[in-house]
Write a protein that binds this DNA or RNA. Structure first.
Lengths: 178, 178
DNA sequence: CGACAACTTATTGTATACAAATACCATTCG
DNA sequence: CGAATGGTATTTGTATACAATAAGTTGTCG
């Protein structure tokens, strides 16, 4: 997508995730346009996308608000995510190529290096973890599934920042990958 | 959403489903605008929605095309639908209220009447079937799930028109509902 | 003939002005 | 005092003009 509407999207999204735009508060197109330094047109575009991703919700008279996530919502997203990922793995298992499998092994090995280092390298871990899972999705060969999964994985980013990355968890993750 | 952009959405969508806009063919915003009798602005809105619903796809340089559905795509959608509906049923089962349950029984009874009539009343059957399932979705209480399900159920409408509604199938459906 | 570059056309992206819808507020009436 | 009503302000929706980008086309040179 084009530059201005992408900038608007990224900007608004990050303002929501950072809490700069408070949950539940109304957001006006013009105000956002000023904040992003673009006109309302690309802002509207961005809002539509964010609405589809449930970062923004609109009331019956088309006013936009920052979505506020209840615990139930988060649980719901998690449940869906678990199911969709299992489905992706199932599809991938019968479709994956040798090459893709090799790449997965590679990422898992790197990921192990990251946690075996004297001081665990969490960014490296996360990066390889992401790549590992992206290959499953690639092998599952379902755009629809991929987009659904994207929806439910991108969401709880707000909370993920606070998540604990203790060595125990990282090791368990590696073994599950294996 | 507003009138013009809704009209555009409905119009374009129906042109796609009816085959008036050929699968894989490029669609230009201005041409659609003329066809719908609105300006490009609401057309763009409609295209974005249709893109999210995978009726329209865009190439790397932002040109829009009517999506063409492979058999694999349809199977994929069906598989996802089965999974999501099962999930919905599971959630609904532990959340449903007496009232909702009663309404479901009611719709299933009407649905039975429709097939027990001397001549099966397919529209009545479909209507009650739809209501029956909508209560499951309501009871499942997950907006996200509902929107995902909408996506995969709305899609194969193209083919559904050709589907067989023989008495055998209708009866089986009723029993499964029970 | 084929590759490449300059130019021309087609298409989408953005800004802006204005129209339509909705919310907000004050005022009046029961 | 509370509900209804009218008018005003706020906010979103649409049309349109223009900018930016991508595609197609022609012409030149090797």
């Amino acid at each position: 997508m084009s530059r201005a509407s992408d900038r608007a999207y990224d900007h608004i999204r990050s303002m929501i995730l950072s809490g700069e735009l408070q949950s539940g508060s109304q957001i006006r197109e013009e105000a956002l346009a000023e904040l992003c330094g673009v006109s309302r047109t690309p802002v509207r575009d961005a809002l539509r996308r964010l609405e589809a991703e449930m970062f923004v919700r609109r009331n019956e008279s088309q006013r936009s608000f920052v979505a506020d996530w209840s615990l139930d919502d988060l649980e719901d997203a998690f449940q869906l995510r678990a199911m969709l990922e299992a489905h992706a793995a199932k599809r991938a298992a019968v479709r994956i190529s040798r090459d893709q499998l090799a790449r997965m092994r590679g990422h898992n090995a790197h990921l192990k290096q990251a946690i075996d280092a004297s001081r665990p390298d969490v960014p490296k871990f996360l990066d390889n973890n992401r790549l590992f899972h992206s290959i499953i999705l690639e092998a599952a060969a379902s755009e629809r599934l991929a987009s659904m999964l994207l929806q439910v994985t991108e969401q709880p980013v707000v909370l993920r920042t606070a998540r604990q990355y203790d060595l125990e968890n990282l090791r368990r993750s590696h073994h599950e990958h294996d």
